[in-house]
Write a protein that binds this DNA or RNA. Structure first.
Lengths: 337, 337
DNA sequence: TTGTAAGCGTTATCAA
DNA sequence: TTGATAACGCTTACAA
């Protein structure tokens, strides 16, 4: 079922059929109607391959995601997808699981314009590679972004968010604060680690590197990290986790060790995932504007797609500290002399 | 950068370059080496659009997913992706969020063979539509599947799993068992509801429809459903939730109402998500072989892709009841006469 | 073994 | 307003 069949059935040339199908003005009203009729009876739909090859534009947006098991990123994607869809584009999700070779292979799909553009929800690419890609194709970085790379991006102020979160723990009397970070050297992690250090510093608390452990965002890794921290001579009285999922494992580890959260020890999460609110205890966490981030990312991409202009605009959206149960003021044990 | 450029640089025809690039045997060893060399220096990679148009095969597998916020499905996808990748295919994820029009639009990508095949992780399509698609394209249904549709599928024995789970609750002394089901009329849900009814039946417990509530898999919806159930004159002493995420909200609702899990009331989940093990209490749940399901789905698809044969094989993989903390024998209150 | 040329399904240019 | 035709990048008969 190709345009030829429609041409044959309608009695017009393929050129006219093409014009009719694409709603171009220079085609007789009645003829268009007839052609569309024919297309319908034949259940004809244009071959996107032929179209894309000719137009060098498929209308498909590739969304590359390092880690798909992340509610926050998934929701940001969904938001972007919706916007893109409204403008006639289709968004597909390409999880790469931190596999650099696979990501590069996928990126080849850009060359023939099989993909019209990319939103990176994290990438294994380096700054140079990203910038090279950016001069040739519409791309935007979303949530994660390479520091200083000349591309459009949307994210949150990770450093500040971490700073505020850890400061909140300090205000609750905690000075021995463990951090469960991620083992992936991505931008959000680096910035959150910086925010953690700066918060300690500005409160006059010295940074202790053995208080920082790395997980892989899975709850289990939060559990492991916490168990390690608990073997320290002086374990933390509060934990700052870089995701709610790891905070979940953290709390479980504490519970298994007979430590009450938040009675004895406090735990701060990150993401405000749908779980955070419903766990026992509910998790005090840093809320991220996932819908706004996805929306903004799609807008930045659409600008490039439609106007072919590159502003390389960088947007940072506001987070919020969501107060719940898992953080409480430290109860000091006053020693009786 | 097209095949022409490589031809020009190497001094050979585009036909020879094409043959060299595709590792065909009928090309001189030295010439091939030289051509590959040229391709490398030019950083040439074939245009998939041109290739696909000509071959009617893009090597891209579309994975349609109703609901992306589902750890289980996401992991099944990852497993399928890995297998497919080993065989030279690329798998992309297309979340459709239960939007039937959008799903149909995506399916048009099959027509021009922009997509080589589809794995459905759930679909809004009806049986008829699915079967029509199946005669023309390689497709397999994964996890969710339309009952009786003549297509290949992999799933688990949802009815049996639910039966065993609910029977386990009954064995623990529970007779008033609430069910938190899903509001999406998908196959897994229907079968689990059947399993629930049959388990009650075979224990001589009568089915009470008001004990069944529907959520949307989000923890919050499990919370709401439970709060409703708690307003009943005689609330359940055990809850069977169709996902761990809803079990999470369920437990929270119970906790908020001063009810101890599992001390007073038991909760059974479904999925064995990474959270289930790390929550407090950890969730007794039904474990699904996500990796095996994804692998099998990809194998069934590869068969169709490579051999062009359609067996429409249906495979049911084994589940397991994962015993943890959230279910305990019912403590009966003996009334003192 | 290599090259020429047709064709995959479109759309844009140009002429009618 | 409509139609013939070239072109997008690639592969594969067929010819050399």
């Amino acid at each position: 079922m190709t345009i030829k069949d429609v041409a044959k059935l309608s009695g017009y040339s393929i050129a006219t059929v093409s014009r009719a199908m694409n709603n171009q003005r220079n085609v007789d009203k009645n003829i268009r109607a007839k052609i569309l009729e024919c297309a319908k009876t034949l259940d004809y739909s244009p071959n996107i391959l032929g179209k894309s090859l000719r137009n060098k534009d498929s209308g498909i947006i590739m969304c590359i995601m390092l880690n798909i098991n992340n509610n926050f990123l998934a929701d940001a994607f969904l938001s972007a997808q919706k916007q893109l869809n409204n403008e006639g584009y289709q968004a597909i999700l390409c999880p790469v699981s931190y596999d650099s070779d696979y990501e590069k292979k996928l990126l080849h799909l850009l060359e023939g314009r099989l993909m019209a553009g990319v939103i990176f929800f994290g990438t294994t690419l380096g700054r140079r590679e990203l910038e090279e890609l950016n001069v040739r194709f519409p791309i935007v970085q979303c949530s994660e972004y390479i520091e200083g790379a000349e591309t459009a991006f949307v994210s949150i102020e990770n450093r500040l968010a971490a700073f505020e979160g850890v400061t909140y723990l300090i205000q609750n009397g905690h000075t021995r604060i463990g951090m469960i970070s991620s083992k992936f050297g991505i931008s959000s992690t680096k910035k959150r680690e910086t925010g953690y250090r700066e918060a300690l510093e500005s409160a006059g608390i010295s940074f202790v590197s053995e208080l920082v452990r790395k997980g892989n965002y899975e709850p289990e890794s939060g559990y492991q990290a916490t168990m390690e921290l608990l073997t320290l001579p002086e374990p933390p009285t509060a934990y700052f986790c870089v995701s709610d999922s790891m905070a979940c494992g953290c709390i479980r580890a504490l519970c298994n060790s007979g430590i009450n959260v938040p009675g004895d020890v406090s735990v701060l999460g990150f993401d405000n995932s749908p779980f955070a609110r419903n766990m026992v205890p509910s998790i005090t966490t840093i809320g991220l504007p996932y819908a706004a981030i996805g929306k903004k990312a799609s807008e930045l991409l659409l600008e490039q797609l439609k106007n072919c202009k590159k502003d390389n605009e960088g947007v940072l959206l506001p987070h919020e500290l969501v107060l719940r149960e898992s953080v409480k003021p430290l109860v000091r044990c006053h020693r009786v002399p």
